[in-house]
Amino acid sequence: MKEINVNRIFALAGFVLSGALLFGTRQFPERAVSAARYVNFLGITMGVLSLILLLSSIRENERNSERVVWIESPLHFVETLIGIIVYFVLINWLGFFVSSLLFLIILGWFLGYRKPLKLIASSVGLLLFIYFVFVRFLTVPVPSGILGGIL
């Protein structure tokens, strides 16, 4: 996608946001007048800046506009993205340490690291470090998950 088209889309999104803010302040009660003033100020400024962005993208020549490459390596990008989301869901079930160990090893393998022993050793080493720094030294509770108590 060309950058000027990206700018046009974001300018329109800016208008929507600006409108939503201005509309939103109309629901504010009378006692929140100062909050409404500030949000209106932000909404109007967002509208003005979006208009400038839109006008400048209309004025610009499409041929001179640079191409925006959203994702350079789709396979690794998608693997990482799905991996992180699944990891987030798993933490709620398996707790932090079990899901982290699985996440580190599986995503590392998918991203192309093919030395299993090194991969396992570095993952375990990192988790031990986290355990001593966060759990023991800083006494930060980590998510235990629904099955955490059983595992």
Binding site: T80, G83, I84, Y87, F103, L104, L107, G108, W109, L111, G112, Y113, L119, S122, S123, L126
Partner: peptide, 8 residues
């Protein structure tokens, strides 16, 4: 491949 999961 090691860094990305670790930072996440």
């Amino acid at each position: 491949a090691i860094l990305i999961p670790a930072i996440a």
